[in-house]
Design a protein around this nucleic acid. Structure first.
Length: 323
DNA sequence: TGCCCATGGTAAT
DNA sequence: TTACCCTGGGCAG
């Protein structure tokens, strides 16, 4: 269930722990027939563009994954515990002689210095006083793909897309995506150019992965509030400086997201306030999922509307939306 | 414990 | 436009 920041963090995990190693590729669930095409290949590179993950193999083929709304990666094995905070849209685990330590993902506070909360899954044999948990651990749930090295394992469940593609297809997919701040150097100009070509409401345009890659429903609502912008304004009617400010804000939020693993969209909080906000999911955002509650700035009730089959939240007063 | 909903996109209709 | 993917957190009971 990630927006762009999570996928960059997942790419980083593969980069740190899987790149350069041969992968034993299987499909415990049995629904990924292409596993045989890449089984035994060495992972050459791991990167994300927007919400798309690309695992490039030395054979020239690429495993392309999009998590969609349910998808998740589970990591386990000989992986530094410090990295537990780095998984997102998935959980990062570590097997040890004591059991399997699984970092609580979206809740992890490790990156802002608070105590890390982990939960311990004790294997059945150990719970009975037997031998330590074996590696690799048995797949849990419907595991579409398992990528296994000598000392680490990544399990993928519930993805929207999981396919083996060639270079031409990678290029086609990337060409179809809007700029990602962490990938495209000239992102601001590309974003502005694509916005200028569409009269669609800005609330819709921000969710369009062809215009800008990586923004999802949470960031969309929060960015528009931060800009005090009505979601209904035609994208191409917005002043250039407004578009530029939106892009700059996305760059900032994405960096925070990749660094912390959290969608921290409220500025100016003290560390104590941040911890409180993270401990209580409800208090994390300006408007997202706050329909009917008071705007944190002006007290007006936050409104929810459906835009493009997704829930959109905004403050009608702060964002200048007339009833 | 069981139901509802969700940070998304694809493919069928 | 709808069904699907089929997980996991939150919450009512």
């Amino acid at each position: 269930m990630p927006e762009g920041h999570s996928v960059h963090r997942i790419a980083r995990q593969f980069d740190r722990h899987f790149v350069g190693k041969p992968l034993s590729v299987s499909s415990p669930q049995g629904r990924f027939g292409d596993a045989r095409l890449i089984d035994g290949a060495v992972l050459a590179r791991s990167y994300a563009v927007g919400k798309h993950l690309f695992l490039e193999l030395d054979s020239g083929l690429t495993l392309h994954v999009h998590l969609g709304i349910y998808g998740a990666w589970d990591f386990a094995g000989d992986i530094a515990l410090d990295d537990t905070a780095a998984s997102a849209g998935g959980r990062m685990g570590q097997t040890s002689g004591k059991g399997t330590v699984v970092g609580s993902h979206e809740d992890s506070l490790a990156s802002i210095g608070a105590p890390r909360r982990t939960r311990l899954r004790i294997g059945e044999t150990e719970a009975r006083g037997g031998s330590p948990v074996e590696f690799p651990p048995a797949p849990v749930g419907q595991v579409r793909v398992r990528l296994l090295t000598n000392d680490a394992v990544a399990d993928l469940r519930g993805p929207t897309v999981c396919e083996v593609i060639d270079e031409a297809r990678v290029t086609a997919i990337r060409d179809d995506l809007g700029p990602d701040p962490l990938v495209d150097k000239g992102g601001a100009a590309k974003f502005a150019a694509r916005i200028a070509r569409t009269a669609t409401p800005i609330g819709r345009a921000l969710m369009n992965q062809k215009i800008v890659a990586g923004i999802g429903n949470v960031y969309r609502a929060e960015m528009l509030f931060r800009a005090r912008l009505s979601p209904y304004l035609p994208a191409n009617a917005l002043p250039a400086e407004t578009i530029r400010a939106l892009w700059d804000d996305w760059v900032k939020l994405l960096r925070i997201g990749v660094d912390t693993g959290q969608m921290l969209t409220m500025d100016g909080l003290t560390l104590t306030q941040k911890r409180a906000a993270l401990a209580n999911r409800v208090d994390r955002h300006w408007v997202y999922r706050r329909a009917g509650e008071s705007c944190r700035v002006c007290g007006t009730a936050i409104v929810m509307d459906i835009m493009e089959a997704r829930k959109l939240y905004f403050c009608p007063k702060c964002q200048g939306v007339s009833a």
